[in-house]
Design a protein around this nucleic acid. Structure first.
Length: 738
DNA sequence: GTGCGACGATTTTAG
DNA sequence: ATCGTCGCAC
């Protein structure tokens, strides 16, 4: 394909972006506007038209799936393999550099990558060693502290406690954690980027080499970058380098994970980037886009962008007010049947929800209706415990200093190495700053003979495994270790069928090893490459199954996907927007973006549902329709199953009211509430979600949620001073003050 | 060293 | 409701 033929399939805006002069470019690409298309065409354009060598081009994505897809599409545009092109995730590319330059990076050659689960174990272990209270120093929170700082490029030694003892302790734990990783030769996800950045910065030749080599860098989903990713990019591209980044500030939904939307603005300013906008949408009907635009326009601080489509009209968006979550599921089932009758594949229908807990009702209903479905999310293959156990054995054969793997399998299957023995080994290791392996070896003579024997058995096992597998091909190595470690038998002996499933998973690991083709030039052994692959690509790409089934997933998981029919369910205050965000002005915009993401997944038909009552976490709660419903343009909506009985308009004020108005004579306007939504049918409640209230003991606060009914009705209040409390509504003597 | 019952938490999640 | 972790008893 010649350079110009390449442009034939692009619209004007896309073509302008693709052919933009060399230099920093920011493409603001709306949902469904051909973002990936622009990115891949830009890569091909650089190669074909500007004669850029694929060797000098790097493309960065967030997921392995996106990376694989991009490579495929670029290759098909070029009509040849693009092997020298570096395409990968931020983490994958940083990993690649660290493998090549482990010496400069100060890492052992056989450094291992730990996932977040391993990381948490390590943090917990350190907290315990420090004899700290795990209630006060929650491992998860400490872990988040560490990651948040790493994500912003801050080492523990750069942090100051500012006289805050809590902070001082956290910094101390961070430092201990760093030391532990160093000693064990392991690197966590954030460390891959941080370490790579530091290495490129501290070894000038290296930085210069890569800057010279990668004169062109393409970045996808730029709104999801965090601080260290941005810095890494800036270091590689140089401050005015030819970085071509694509993103959509309106689809930034990962702030809680460290993403900084501001990076888009920063990039524009700091790099002096030229901005291109892609606003023509090729996915959804005009009606759906009107709804999406209306919702997102409520956010401020947007970079500004409005989707449009050449197609006119479209089916109205159907809104259904369900009694409860079962009714909601039944409604969806009915519509899926209808969808089937139109001859559409089941896979063209998706149920999107805010939180995973909501999938259950749909799963049950779909199962009862014998409609095949698939739930996305949950544990991925390489994250399963039995798989991680097997990998730990494999890692130990490669690196005896890997304490995390040591701890994981030293007594699995049980071989008589108890907590007391291990505690001694840990203490010894800590005092001398050596690995558990080394400490254990040194202590053999001084341990009780039983314990010493058991431990010696473990050492012997690992050494034997290492020697045995050295000459084997990868899949034999994996097979042998699973077998000879006793892991396979251990699970085979379990009585319930869960054990069977675990054995199957272990066998599947052998298959995975068999089908594993390492990417060439990392200087790793096949096993080393496989282990890195297992952590870095936790197995979601292979998850695709052929069966035609309804798709169930969270809104987050749906980003980047599209479906002819979409059910956006659970549109209730406290659920979506989630109660954690509903009253937080800083977090609400992100919920709204999430809603925007959900709406823009739909191509032809969009259904929105909410339930008046819902059983969740074992108790029933009553919630008002989501404020997002009231932000939709009424003319785009159509109420399903309108009722004659009336209480109040559904889409009224921005604030959800629980006040039940007296029965109104008749529904004069288009939409009227079908049933009384209030949890307290027939009673007058002068309180609503968000109301300011005063309590004789707890002082002033805000109502977050109502639950239950009758005498057992409860109210959740966030008090200024006393914090959040659940109170019995009847007894609480709350006084409304706003 | 293993097994069971109490207890608590439970938005979203790629690498 | 449900799942994972923890402590204690065998």
């Amino acid at each position: 394909m010649s350079g110009h033929r390449l442009l034939d399939s692009l619209n004007d805006a896309q073509r302008e972006a693709v052919t933009a002069p060399l230099g920093p470019v920011l493409v603001l690409a709306g949902a469904g506007s051909g973002k990936t298309r622009v990115l891949t065409h830009r890569a091909a354009w650089l190669i074909l038209e500007h004669g850029v060598s694929p060797h000098g081009l790097m493309a960065v994505t967030f997921t392995n799936k996106a990376a694989a897809e991009m490579r495929g599409r670029i290759e098909s545009l070029l009509d040849m393999p693009a092997d020298p092109l570096w395409i990968g995730t931020f983490h994958g590319l940083a990993h690649r550099m660290l493998r090549r330059h482990w010496r400069e990076a100060g890492l052992p050659q056989s450094f291992q990558i730990i996932d977040e689960d391993d990381q948490q174990r390590l943090v917990r272990k350190i907290i315990r060693e420090q004899k700290l209270d795990e209630q006060r120093w929650v491992p998860r929170e400490v872990q988040q502290f560490i990651n948040a700082h790493k994500d912003e490029g801050r080492r523990s030694k750069k942090l100051e406690d500012r006289g805050d003892p809590t902070r001082r302790q956290l910094i101390r734990l961070y430092a201990l954690y760093e030391a532990r990783c160093e000693q064990a030769g392991v690197v966590d996800f954030a460390e891959l980027l941080l370490r790579c950045h530091e290495t490129l910065q501290n070894v000038p030749d290296l930085g210069a080499y890569y800057r010279e080599r990668f004169r062109h860098i393409l970045v996808d989903e730029f709104q999801d970058t965090n601080g260290i990713q941005y810095d890494w990019l800036r270091l590689l591209a140089g401050r005015t380098g030819a970085a071509f980044v694509v993103g959509d500030d309106d689809q930034s939904i990962y702030r809680w994970r460290g993403a900084r939307v501001e990076n888009m603005q920063h990039f524009r300013r700091e790099f002096g980037a030229t901005v291109y906008r892609l606003e023509q949408n090729y996915r959804s009907t005009q009606v759906i886009l009107a709804a999406a635009n209306a919702v997102i326009s409520r956010n401020s601080d947007r970079m500004g962008k409005e989707l449009w489509t050449a197609a006119k009209g479209g089916e109205p968006i159907r809104v259904y007010a369900a009694f409860n979550e079962r009714d909601e599921a039944d409604f969806v089932i009915e519509r899926i049947r209808e969808h089937e009758r139109r001859g559409l594949p089941l896979a063209a229908a998706a149920v999107l929800y805010r939180s995973n807990a909501q999938s259950r009702a749909f799963e049950e209903a779909l199962m009862a209706a014998r409609i095949p479905y698939r739930v996305y999310g949950g544990l991925r293959f390489f994250e399963r415990a039995e798989i991680k156990d097997a990998l730990a054995y494999l890692r130990l054969t490669q690196s005896r200093a890997d304490d995390i793997s040591f701890e994981r399998v030293v007594n699995l299957p049980a071989r008589g190495i108890g907590g007391a023995t291990l505690e001694q080994v840990r203490t010894h290791a800590r005092d001398r700053a050596v690995s558990l392996w080394e400490a254990g070896q040194a202590m053999l003579p001084s341990l009780p003979s039983r314990a010493a024997g058991a431990l010696r058995g473990f050492f012997g096992l690992i050494d034997r495994l290492a020697a045995d597998i050295a000459p084997m091909p990868l899949e034999e190595q994996v097979r042998h270790v699973i077998q000879a470690s006793g892991l396979r038998d251990h699970h085979a002996k379990e009585k319930d069928h869960k054990g069977e499933a675990r054995v199957e998973n272990l066998d599947e690991l052998v298959n995975a090893a068999e089908g594993f083709a390492p990417e060439s030039d990392d200087g790793l052994t096949p096993l080393g490459a496989f282990l890195a692959h297992a952590t870095l690509e936790s197995g979601e790409t292979q998850a695709a199954t052929g069966a035609d089934c309804v798709q169930l997933m969270t809104l987050h998981a749906a980003k980047g996907l599209e479906f002819p029919t979409v059910f956006l369910v659970g549109l209730e205050e406290g659920l979506f927007p989630s109660e954690h965000s509903a009253f937080d002005a800083d977090r609400l915009p992100e919920e709204r973006r999430l809603c925007y993401v959900g709406l823009t997944r739909a191509m032809q038909r969009l259904y929105l549902t909410h339930a008046e009552s819902r059983r969740i976490y074992g108790h029933t709660s009553y919630r008002d329709p989501s404020r997002f419903l009231s932000e939709l343009p009424p003319e785009a909506l159509e109420d399903v199953r309108p009722r004659i009985s009336v209480s109040r308009p559904l889409y009224s004020a921005p604030g959800p009211a629980i006040v039940r108005r007296g029965p109104v004579a008749e529904a004069s306007e288009t939409r009227r509430r079908s049933r009384a939504a209030a949890p307290l049918a027939g009673e007058d409640v002068p309180m609503r979600l968000g109301s300011r209230v005063r309590h004789p003991k707890f002082g002033e606060g805000t109502i977050l949620r109502f639950e239950g009914s009758g005498e057992s009705r409860q109210v959740h209040v966030n008090f200024e001073d006393a914090g959040q409390k659940w109170l019995m509504y009847e007894l609480a003597r709350l006084e409304r003050i706003s």
